[in-house]
Design a protein around this nucleic acid. Structure first.
Lengths: 196, 196
DNA sequence: CATAAGTCGTACGTCTGTGTACGACTTTCA
DNA sequence: TGAAAGTCGTACACAGACGTACGACTTATG
């Protein structure tokens, strides 16, 4: 179960693949309809080289999505989970919002070419991590329980996605994003306080 | 300044156009990449008839978007604006969520083919209505003022969009949507209460 | 009912993007 | 250093979608 595939690859090829996947993430992150040619050029690589490693566009999109989600998993895994659920959530958002922002368009690209099941499968690991945290917050009484858990997890994603778009449109400044997202999500999840 | 264009059109044509625009809204609402052919067939009309009324796909998309937003304007205009801003907002969400849900994909279709300025222009009327309401709520002390107004307005849209997607994915039931959306938006906008 | 308006099929040219074939060149690495 | 692996340009076949041209048919409306 090592990460290296059975095939031996030249260092050369390894480097190309890395550049291609990275370019795919960036390019598809900006435009879900980007062509194979766009991606190859963004990677500084000939189209033929690309096809040498990924036989179809769908395969490429899948690799890009998998890579982005793997990166997400890494970031999430590095977050300190001890302490108040609210604070953990804040740390988590702080360190992951930009990654999510760059991946939303990539996700829609994937939805066009990959079966829904495959996407869910890839997406599950990071989603579960968030879900667990929210559930723990609920158990501790810090988060609300009057809305479906799946919705609470989902809405975090949609807020991040929205923040990314507002950022792109110039209506949110780069430095504002983290605080805005945190405040918003905190408000959504907070257990209702009875008003005077 | 009447709504009837200078050209006289036959009742026949009028009906076709209505069916086409309606089909465009529905079809593009499901798949932003739907082809002209898809839309024509959904409208029960020949492709040539469609091209007789809309010279390019972009023109058709624009008409569909304009129609959806005009419908939105109507719905918003019909909402009772008197009373507590929180309650007004609840009424507003109640009556508009499904329409927004059906229009989000249409909006992304428009983003692919129309200049950003044109979209903003069409989108402005309904957006302003919501913005005014939020501002009023802020003035009355009912809504928070520590986040940008544009964000508060925008995030409502993103939550609605998210709810629509959760609905489509079967994670939210039709009857749950309104209440879920209302509770979520209420939590986001509520002026922070100091905790004991 | 006659004419103008509208419908609609078929066919065509074009453009864009995908994926393949071939072949020459360059880099790795044993 | 030489064979295998990788790079990459050009060219091609193919498919899907757009938009146009033509012409026959049908329907509204004066």
């Amino acid at each position: 179960m090592s990460t290296t595939a059975p095939r031996r690859r030249r260092a050369d090829a390894e480097r190309s693949i890395a550049r291609i996947v990275s370019a795919a993430r960036a390019t598809l992150g900006r435009d879900p309809n980007a062509s194979v040619d766009d991606i190859a050029r963004a990677a500084g690589v000939g189209r033929m080289t690309l096809y040498g490693h990924f036989r179809t566009r769908a395969e490429l999109v899948e690799a890009a999505l998998a890579d982005a989600l793997r990166a997400g998993e890494e970031v999430l895994a590095a977050v300190d989970l001890t302490g108040d659920a609210r604070e953990v959530l804040a740390r988590l958002l702080e360190s992951s919002w930009s990654l999510v922002a760059e991946s939303t368009a990539l996700l829609t690209a994937a939805q066009d070419v990959l079966p829904a099941g495959r996407i869910r499968q890839l997406h599950d690991a990071p989603a579960n991590r968030v879900e667990e945290l929210v559930r723990r917050g609920q158990d501790e009484g810090a988060f609300r329980t009057d809305l479906p858990l799946s919705w609470l997890v989902g809405v975090i994603h949609y807020v991040l996605q929205g923040a990314a778009e507002e950022r792109r449109a110039g209506r949110l400044k780069e430095e504002e994003v983290a605080a805005t997202v945190t405040a918003t999500v905190k408000a959504i999840l907070a257990a209702p306080v009875r008003k005077g």
